[in-house]
Each structure stands twice: as C-alpha cells, then as structure tokens.
C-alpha cells in the first residue's frame, strides 16, 4: 500500500507547479478573447448554459492560489475514492 501511496503523495505535493502557466488552453479562452479577435462573441458562447461551480477554476474565493489548488486536489481525490468505495460496497453485496 505504501508503494502506491508514496508516489501519489509526492506528485500531490508538486501540485502548485500546475499553477505556473499563465496561458489558457487553446479553445478555453475568456469570452473577451473572442471580442478582441473577432469583434463579437458568438451567441452560443455568450449565452452558454452554466451551472454555478462549487470551486470555479480550482480557486476558492479569497484564498491563496496555492492553498486553493491543494484543497481542490483534495476534494477531487476524496470524491474519486469515495465513489470507488461505494462501487466496491455495492459490488460486494
């Protein structure tokens, strides 16, 4: 179990490296980008369906970026392990 947990922990500690990039991914721009490039924002993008995210863009309002990123990582990991734990229980029955 340790042989599995230690490398995961190591990668998790490095998580703030993911914040280094200031660049957005291609095709994941802010709406203003389209305004600047095209002179308009495509209607569908402007009026996109949007659910309010609990932790939008992995940042918790007011908290330091690095802390937010670590917390986001923990939330994701806990959810994934939680869901697999429930799968396991359901299948074992």
């Amino acid at each position: 179990m340790k042989k599995l947990a230690y490398p995961l922990l190591f990668i998790f500690i490095l998580l703030p490296l993911g914040l280094i990039s200031e660049n957005p991914a291609w095709a994941e721009w802010e709406n203003e980008y389209y305004h600047d490039i095209l002179g308009f924002i495509p209607e569908g993008i402007q009026n996109a369906f949007a659910l309010p995210s609990i932790i939008p863009d992995y940042s918790l309002g007011g908290l330091n970026d690095v802390v937010s990123y670590y917390l986001s990582g923990i939330v994701g990991i806990v959810l994934i392990f939680g869901i697999f734990y429930l799968f396991g229980k359901k299948i074992a029955r």
Binding site: G18, I20, N23, A25, Y69, G73, I77, F84, Y85
Partner: peptide, 29 residues
C-alpha cells in the same frame, strides 16, 4: 484491483491539474 483503479483515477485527476505552458500562449496537460 479496486485500490489501484481508484488510485489511478485520482492520479488522472491530479495529472490534469499540471498545466504546462507552451510557446504560442497556450497550455495543456
């Protein structure tokens, strides 16, 4: 298999958080 599959799924989630900047002003993972 369950602990390993769950761990690799968690690893997939984490690995996607490592945004790598590239020339041209974009990034990816």
């Amino acid at each position: 298999t369950l602990p390993l599959i769950a761990s690799l799924s968690a690893l997939s989630f984490i690995i996607m958080m490592f945004n790598i900047p590239i020339p041209g002003g974009t990034s990816g993972h």
